[in-house]
Every structure is written in structure tokens, then in C-alpha cells.
Simulated assay, not measured.
Amino acid sequence: MSLSVDEIAASPVFAEALRSFASKMRLQFDESPRLARMLASHQRWLLSQSAFALHLEYDPSKPGSGLTTTNLREIITVNNAASRNTVLNYLDQLLSYRFVRLAGDSNRRPRRYEATEVSHDAMFRWVVANLAVLDAIDGGRREERIRQAPDLFRQLQPQIAHRAAYDQRWVNPPERVALFLWTEAGGLVMDELIRRATEIVPGVDGYDLGKLEARVLAEHFMISRTHLQRLLRRSVEIGGLSVYGPQKNHYILAKDFLTEYRYWQAVKFALVDEAYEAVCGPALTQKPVISRTAEI
């Protein structure tokens, strides 16, 4: 059986695995900033996963199948994740950046899009990175399996995308998480916070993030410095972050905020594992025994 949300969240290795995952996402952004930004907010994450799934599910024998504006809109608007115009603008942007191309006769309606090779590579790496986290938790060999049989990826990614698009626990993050994730490039900022959250501050119920230089981070993630400063300030107001010491750019990540974020992420990893089991079968013959609760 696949791992449950509670089993993932309680795993003593989940915290480190999640930091490793955040570092991989940072590396992927550094290699291809424009492409990585397609997963850098929760809205774009949902759009990108659903769009890629539709691309993979194209069936020439079924007229109207595949990645079209109508098909993507039908998935995304169910949960009010994006408006019709947002879907249109999103596909136009993908086309402009050559992350997708028009398939077949561009004059035919509805127009169908297909992912380019660079998008295939990025999504494969994203799936592999998620499987690696699950393997770290229970000693499975999911990553090895998908690398040995990459055609399974074409079945697995749509399973992940459809589960995620309709699971309200994932679609609607907790308020303090949503503050970052529903904003432009907020996922990149959140990954940076998680990557830094390694040391508990003595006498303070939180993790030392060190100095967050808004100008440097804003330039790196290609977002407005004012926007980033507003995010940090608002997070302080609702108890996600706090300022430590005399300098106003030294931050602490609240322990309960990190716990909240990890549990929300555990929802996604559980969905990934459900999808993996549906496509590839159980990763293990039996579930692992989790001997102690993770330090969160």
C-alpha cells in the first residue's frame, strides 16, 4: 500500500528529504529560470501539471483530446484555481517561450498544443525528485524503476496531475502557506526558506534563516523587491516568520509554520505515491515501521 499523509509527515527523514527536494528545485531554477517559474506559484503548478497531463493523454482516435484551451480550462476552473483568461494567457506564454508548440494544422479549432523536449525533461526531473523523497522515507526503489523504464513516466505524470487537481487538501494550502504559494514566484521563496531551515534558535521556537537580503533574492528570482518585502512583512504579521536580533533582515521561521508546510507537502507526496502504485504497483511488499515521530 502507498504511504499515507500521516506516515510521510511523521517520518524522521522527511524533513531532510524535503530540504533536499527544495535544493533540487533551486538548482532547476538556476539552470532554467523561465521554465522553473512555471511551477513557482501554486496556480502555475496546477496549470503546468494539468497541461502536461493533457499533452500526454492525447489520443488521435478521440477528436478534441490533448492539450487544448477548453480541456485545460475544464480541469482548472472546477476549483476556481484560474480564470478562463488566465488559462489563455498561460498557454500563450508557454508558446512564446517555446515550452509548447502548436500541433498539426494551426488553423484548425480547437488548437492543440504539445510539450517541447525541454518541458519533457523538466517534468521528468520533477517526478524523479518526488519519487526520491518517497524512497528516502521507506527505502523503496521508485526512482530507479522510473529511470529504468522511462515510458512509465507517461502514465505516471497524468495520474499525479489529476489526483492533485481535485484534492482540496492540496488545492487549498493553509493560510500561511498560501501567502507565499499563491503569489508570483512565491514557491521559489518558500523553497529558499525551507532550504535554510536547519538550525533551531536557542530559546526561540523556530529555525534560524539567517539574513534574507530582499534585493539579492528578488533579483535572483526575478521578482519585485517591493513584492518580496511585502511577503516577508505579511508573514511576520501572521506568525510565519519573525525578526531576530537588532537587524531587521535576520529572520526566524516559526516551528509550527514549518510543521504546517510539511504536512501540506506530505499531501502531495502521498498523492504521488498513490499514482505510482496505480501505475507501477507497490514500492514495497509491506509498509515501513515508523519508530518515532519526526522532529518538527
Rank of each mutant, 00 (worst) to 15 (best):
A294W: 01
L91V: 02
S224A: 12
V267K: 07
K287Y: 03
R262V: 06
W126L: 13
G186C: 01
R176A: 11
K211Q: 15
G66I: 00
A82K: 08
N249E: 13
K24P: 14
S65P: 04
Q247L: 13
L217V: 02
A129F: 09
L271K: 09
W45Q: 15
E7F: 02
E219Y: 07
K248S: 14
H220M: 04
L46M: 10
A81T: 09
Q93T: 09
L131E: 00
T226K: 10
A82L: 07
N249L: 13
T183W: 15
Q148L: 08
L228C: 00
A278S: 14
L95T: 08
E184R: 15
V177T: 03
L258H: 13
Y90F: 06
Y90V: 02
V216L: 14
Q28H: 15
S4R: 02
A22K: 08
P110F: 13
A185W: 08
P202L: 10
E74H: 10
D121R: 09
A294D: 08
A103C: 09
L156G: 02
Y263D: 05
K248A: 13
S83N: 11
K255E: 12
S20A: 12
L228P: 03
V177W: 06
Q157A: 00
S291R: 06
A9P: 02
G245E: 00
A122E: 10
Q49C: 10
V128I: 13
P150I: 01
K211E: 15
T77L: 13
A53R: 02
G104A: 01
G245H: 05
L134V: 01
P174T: 01
D208Q: 11
R109A: 15
R112E: 08
S242I: 00
I200R: 10
I76P: 05
R196Q: 04
M38K: 15
S235V: 00
R111E: 12
W170T: 12
E7H: 01
I137Y: 04
R109C: 14
I296V: 08
V272T: 05
P288K: 03
E260G: 11
K255Q: 14
E57C: 01
M123I: 00
H162P: 04
E31G: 15
Y261T: 05
L27K: 12
D138C: 03
L232K: 04
P110H: 14
D167P: 05
R142V: 03
I75R: 08
V100K: 09
K62C: 10
L231C: 10
V216H: 14
M1L: 02
V201F: 12
T198N: 12
L18G: 01
N80R: 15
P174A: 03
E143G: 07
S50R: 10
M38F: 14
L67N: 08
I194F: 02
I146L: 06
F99E: 07
G187V: 02
A51S: 10
V78I: 09
